[in-house]
Simulated scan of single mutants.
Amino acid sequence: MNTTDRTPADLLRSALAADPARPLVTFYDDATGERVELSVATFANWVAKTANLLQGELAAEPGSRLALLLPAHWQTAVWLIACSSVGVVAEAGGDPAGADLVVCGPDELERARACSGERVALALRPLGGRFPQPPAGFLDYAVEVPSQGDRFSPYAPVDPTAPALVVEGEELTAEQVVERARADAARYGLSAGSRLLSGLPYDRWEGLSAGLLAPLAAGASVVLCRNPGRLSGEDLDKRRESERVTVTAL
């Protein structure tokens, strides 16, 4: 963490400079048994590729509005920081009809069709797999992102005081997102090396913060759990132990 960081993308750059090899996001889907662990460097690579897709093929620019219709998932976390990298306003659970572009999972395809701009769909399959058959009217993220560049440079500087995130009807600037994330990190007692296990959804600030932003602001890491209700109390305790969890948000 660097005290001069003013955007979520800045927080990631500082994490990359400090220790690129350390774990940043460990993801579980307890409906499928999937487990994925991403180091800071691997996560940053996915962010760069996604930001290049946004800025290039999708022609997004600072101020563009992106309806983010995705669950708590490691790929959603990537999209959040990619939006910050470009200056795109991520609207968590936003109305696709009023957005410039939409990114959705397989359960939100019909709703996402209301967007008249670019539409991207994620299969949310293990290992970032593609759709067996791409949904009509959508780009398949897993098909489009691998060929994107591994380094990203925005065409225009991102303004930290411009809108960056809309969640629960509240619009936040990039600076406000970082400030809130730092405050939450302090409230959770996070520091470098902390491991926060989150089973909270990404359509609320609390879930976005616990599931990515607060750990990122503190130099900590997150164990992000989708469908945690399928776990017994004993299984959850075992996960906390095996993942060296220090803080839990459920």
Results as ranks from 00 to 15, higher is better:
Lys238Trp: 02
Val78Thr: 15
Glu91Leu: 14
Glu144Gln: 15
Leu213Phe: 12
Thr32Gly: 01
Ala77Val: 03
Gly199Asp: 10
Thr173Ile: 05
Val247Ala: 13
Arg204Val: 06
Ser232Gln: 07
Gly93Pro: 01
Pro71Cys: 04
Ala164Thr: 04
Leu24Thr: 02
Val25Asn: 07
Arg130Asn: 09
Ala59Asn: 12
Cys83Ile: 12
Ala44Phe: 13
Asn45Tyr: 00
Pro228Gly: 00
Ala186Tyr: 12
Asp29Thr: 03
Gly128Arg: 05
Leu80Val: 14
Asp184Trp: 11
Tyr202Ala: 15
Arg204Gly: 03
Ser191Gly: 13
Gly193Val: 01
Leu231Trp: 13
Val120Pro: 00
Trp79Gly: 01
Ser116Asn: 12
Thr32Leu: 04
Pro132Tyr: 14
Ala41Thr: 02
Gly207Ser: 08
Phe138Leu: 02
Val103Ile: 15
Ala97Pro: 00
Val88Pro: 07
Trp205Arg: 03
Ala192Thr: 10
Leu24Glu: 08
Pro154Met: 00
Glu34Gln: 09
Pro126Gly: 05
Glu91Arg: 05
Pro132Ile: 04
Pro201Ala: 09
Pro157Gly: 00
Thr42Trp: 06
Ala218Asp: 10
Val40Tyr: 04
Arg182Thr: 06
Val86Gln: 06
Leu208Arg: 00
Val47Asp: 07
Gly207Asn: 09
Ala112Glu: 06
Gln176Val: 07
Ala92Arg: 00
Thr42Asn: 09
Leu16Phe: 11
Asp203Trp: 10
Ser14Trp: 09
Glu37Thr: 12
Pro215Ser: 13
Ala218Gln: 12
Leu16Thr: 01
Pro132Ala: 13
Tyr188His: 15
Ala121Leu: 10
Glu175Thr: 10
Asp5Arg: 02
Pro96Lys: 08
Arg204Phe: 04
Leu213Ala: 01
Glu34Trp: 11
Val102Asp: 08
Thr32Phe: 09
His73Asp: 15
Ala18Met: 05
